[in-house]
Simulated assay, not measured.
Amino acid sequence: MQVKDCTFLITGAASGLGAATAERLVAAGGNVVLCDMNNSVTEHAERLGDCAAACIADITSAEQMQQAIDEAVRMGGAGGLSGVIHCAGVVSVAKLVDRNGNPADLESYAKTININLVGTFNVMRLAAAAMAKNTPNESGERGVIINTASIAAFDGQVGQCAYSASKAGVVGMSLPAARELSRHAIRVIAIAPGVFETPMMSEIPDEAAQALAAAVPFPKRLGKPDEFAQLAEQIITNPMLNGEVIRLDGGIRMQ
Rank of each mutant, 00 (worst) to 15 (best):
M65E: 00
Q66A: 11
Q67S: 15
Q67V: 11
Q67N: 13
I69S: 00
E71M: 15
E71L: 13
E71C: 13
E71A: 15
A72Q: 05
A72C: 09
A72I: 05
A72T: 10
A72R: 03
A72Y: 05
V73K: 03
V73L: 03
V73D: 04
V73I: 03
R74F: 01
R74K: 13
R74Y: 00
M75H: 04
M75W: 04
G76E: 01
G76H: 01
G76D: 06
G77T: 08
G77D: 07
G77Q: 08
A78M: 08
A78S: 13
G79H: 11
G80V: 06
G80W: 00
G80I: 01
G80M: 03
G80E: 04
G80S: 03
L81G: 03
S82L: 00
S82P: 06
S82Y: 02
G83E: 05
G83R: 02
G83H: 05
G83A: 07
I85R: 02
I85E: 03
I85C: 13
H86N: 15
H86I: 07
H86R: 10
H86W: 07
C87P: 05
A88L: 03
A88F: 00
A88G: 11
G89A: 14
V90C: 08
V90K: 03
V91T: 13
V91D: 07
V93N: 05
V93C: 10
V93S: 10
V93E: 11
V93P: 00
V93F: 14
A94L: 01
A94V: 06
A94N: 12
L96D: 15
V97R: 09
D98N: 15
D98T: 09
R99D: 15
N100M: 08
N100I: 01
N100Q: 14
N100D: 15
N100T: 07
G101Y: 07
G101Q: 09
G101I: 07
N102L: 13
A104M: 14
A104Y: 10
A104T: 05
A104H: 09
D105N: 14
